[in-house]
Simulated scan of single mutants.
Amino acid sequence: MANNPRAFDARAREARQLAYEATTTVGRRYSSVAEIGISLQFTLPDGKPHSSPHRRLFTPDMQAFFDVQCTDRDCSDGGFDLSPAVDSAVRSDRHEVAGHLRCRGTRSRQECGIALDYAVSVQMRDD
Rank of each mutant, 00 (worst) to 15 (best):
S32R: 11
R28L: 12
T25F: 04
E111S: 14
V90D: 10
A15V: 06
Y30Q: 04
S88M: 13
H100L: 11
R56C: 03
N4E: 10
S52W: 04
R91H: 02
F66P: 06
A34P: 05
D87Q: 15
D67C: 09
E35I: 11
A115T: 14
S121Y: 01
A119H: 09
A98Q: 15
A98W: 01
T43Y: 03
D87A: 15
R56P: 01
S83Y: 00
M62H: 01
G27R: 04
D93G: 08
Q69E: 15
H95D: 04
Q63E: 05
E21H: 04
G47Y: 01
Y118K: 03
T25L: 05
A15K: 12
D117K: 08
T25E: 10
E35M: 14
D46V: 12
T71M: 14
S92I: 05
I38P: 02
S51I: 14
F80Q: 01
I36V: 13
V33R: 09
E111H: 11
P84L: 12
E35A: 14
S88H: 08
R13A: 12
P45Y: 01
R56N: 07
E21C: 03
A98D: 14
Q69D: 15
H50F: 13
Y30E: 06
D61T: 10
L44V: 02
R56I: 05
S92D: 09
F66D: 08
R102S: 13
Y20V: 04
C70L: 08
I36S: 02
A15S: 10
R91K: 14
A119N: 08
V26I: 10
T24M: 06
A89Q: 12
V86R: 07
A119P: 00
